[in-house]
Amino acid sequence: MLEPGTKPALSVWYNTRCPVCDAGIGRQKRRLVEAVKAGRIQFRDINLEPAALAGFGASLEDIRRRLHATDAQGQLLVGADVVIAVWKATPGEGWLATLFGNPIALPLTRLAYDRFADLLYAWNRRKGRW
């Protein structure tokens, strides 16, 4: 466990009511089991803490639309930047972070993530997953 007063390296907020999001985070939790047990990484259900990131100006709907996270320095990460941070922390997936998070690929990675997130959000709303 972390020392008292120490922040996790990454706290990820996601929508457990979205089956795609929940399955993806479930996979990452299994890959990061030691980091989760040690408290270095947290995965948190935004539906249980709807105002968790209000201080950053992020609404419940913003977080249902795109992954959000805070790092150990208290910086907010959104969307593809969260995915890249999780890949960096996941054994065997650092190469994905390097490939999709490099300065040349990152703008396209963010665009692709945002379009997919928009489609997934619309699908979840149509299915009444709120």
Rank of each mutant, 00 (worst) to 15 (best):
R17E: 14
G57A: 08
R40P: 05
L111V: 01
D62S: 13
W95Q: 07
A117Q: 09
G55N: 08
H68C: 00
A117P: 05
Q73P: 00
A9P: 01
L99V: 13
A69Y: 02
D81V: 02
A23V: 09
C21Q: 11
L2M: 08
N124E: 15
G74V: 08
A72T: 07
W95M: 06
A117F: 12
C21W: 03
L60S: 02
P103R: 12
A58Y: 05
R27I: 09
L60T: 10
I25R: 00
L10G: 09
K7P: 04
G5S: 07
A122R: 15
Y121C: 08
G92Q: 01
A72D: 13
D22N: 15
E3S: 07
S59F: 01
T16Y: 01
P50K: 00
E49F: 11
V86P: 01
R115M: 08
A69Q: 06
A35W: 07
R126S: 14
Y121S: 05
R31H: 11
W13H: 14
Y121W: 14
A122M: 11
R129P: 01
D62I: 02
L119M: 11
P103A: 12
P91H: 04
N124F: 02
P91Y: 14
I63T: 09
N102I: 11
L48Y: 00
V36Y: 09
V86M: 04
K88Y: 00
Q75T: 06
N102L: 11
T98L: 15
W87R: 06
L96W: 11
E61R: 12
I46Y: 04
A23E: 14
V78F: 00
A51Q: 14
R65V: 03
R64F: 02
R115E: 07
Q28E: 13
A58I: 03
K127M: 14
G57F: 09
F116M: 14
Y14D: 12
E34N: 07
F43L: 05
D114A: 15
I63V: 15
R27V: 13
D22G: 09
T16W: 02
N102P: 05
F100R: 02
N102D: 15
D22E: 11
W130H: 13
D118L: 14
L119H: 12
T6V: 14
G101M: 13
D22Y: 10
E61F: 08
C18W: 09
Q28G: 03
P19D: 12
L10W: 01
R44L: 13
A117K: 05
L111W: 15
L48N: 01
R66G: 04
A85K: 07
L106F: 07
F56H: 15
L48T: 02
C18K: 08
P19I: 05
S11F: 05
A69T: 03
L99Y: 10
L106Q: 06
S11G: 11
Q75D: 10
E49D: 12
R64W: 09
K127Q: 15
V86N: 01
L108D: 02
L53M: 12
R65P: 03
F56G: 06
P50R: 03
H68T: 00
C18G: 07
D22P: 01
R17T: 02
I25W: 04
R66D: 11
V36L: 04
F116V: 15
I104Q: 09
A117T: 10
P103E: 12
Q75K: 10
F100A: 14
V83W: 03
L32P: 02
L119G: 14
D22A: 15
I63F: 04
H68Q: 09
L77D: 00
W87I: 02
V82Q: 03
